[in-house]
């Protein structure tokens, strides 16, 4: 655990010393929110269950999730840099276990992602009516779970790659569609059947649903909160175990 926390500490130091990363993770989703949200808001007709919600407010939880997704991903790009520069080799030949290595990275990336997502939650009182401190706290909890899941996912994506270009490719082909199909951008209830099916299979759908439900209860058209939370927790566990297996497979002679 000490080893994992030491690696987490490193992630935080690195982040604080590269201020451009903060801007890189927060500004693009905010811009997407304002531009897409304002643009679509006036021309889109929301399905009945969500009809009472203005589009900017509907889009808001999804934007927070996007910030978390971007932040987790940016933190994990450093795995590729670490491999190039030799830092990772140094860690791999030390007696640190794969579990500690992954835990350190995922905790660090997850914590940073959550902080960035939470920064956006400061807007919540302006957009969400009847927000209570309890709901805000619950939203933070869901955000923490999501951050860990996405950090683990980012790790698994970054680990086998040897170039940052490859990472951007995977991000555009896989991570962005995953986010678009998570109910962040448009609700599942109005979508065509094939799209709705893809959304139902997407684990991120449940994270977004849980986040939306605790922030704005009773918007409708969402899976039950218990199911959303259970799937998201399962997602986080799987997203942690996968990189552990990957590291164990590639590290050192057996």
């Amino acid at each position: 655990m000490t080893a994992a926390l030491a690696l987490t500490h490193r992630e935080i130091l690195r982040f604080v010393r590269q201020p451009s990363r903060i801007a890189g993770a927060v500004v693009p989703p905010l811009m997407a929110w304002i531009l897409l949200g304002s643009g679509f808001g006036s021309s889109l007709k929301m399905p009945t269950a969500s009809a009472s919600t203005p589009y900017l407010a509907y889009f808001y939880p999804g934007t927070v999730v996007l910030v978390v997704l971007f932040a987790s991903i940016f933190s994990n790009i450093s795995i590729i840099e670490d491999r190039k520069e030799g830092f990772l080799q140094g860690v791999l030949v030390s007696p640190v276990s794969p579990v500690s290595l992954v835990l350190g990275k995922v905790l660090g990336a997850g914590l940073l992602a959550m902080i960035q997502g939470a920064a956006l939650l400061l807007l919540a009182p302006l957009l969400v009516s009847g927000l209570t401190p309890g709901r805000l706290l619950a939203a933070l909890g869901v955000l923490a779970l999501l951050s860990l899941a996405l950090a683990g996912l980012g790790f698994s994506v970054a680990w086998p790659l040897d170039s940052t270009q490859g990472f951007h490719g995977v991000m555009n082909m896989f991570l962005i569609p995953m986010w678009v199909l998570s109910g962040s951008f448009f609700p599942r209830e109005g979508a065509p059947a094939w799209l709705a099916a893809a959304m139902a299979l997407n684990p991120l759908t449940y994270g977004v649903a849980a986040f939306r439900e605790v922030l704005t209860p009773g918007v409708g058209g969402l899976p039950p909160l218990a199911i959303s939370l259970a799937v998201t927790a399962g997602f986080a566990v799987a997203a942690f175990l996968l990189p552990v297996l990957l590291v164990r497979h590639t590290a050192g002679p057996r």
Binding site: A3, A6, R10, R14, Q18, F87, G90, V93, P95
Partner: peptide, 29 residues
């Protein structure tokens, strides 16, 4: 029981010398 110095630097360039040593010490137990 081994100390390894690679050709490509294994220190984190964004960290100080002492921070790097502490990190290495802690991950080595």
């Amino acid at each position: 029981r081994i100390g390894v110095v690679f050709q490509s630097p294994a220190l984190d360039r964004k960290l100080t010398v002492l921070e790097n040593l502490r990190l290495h010490g802690r991950i080595s137990g």
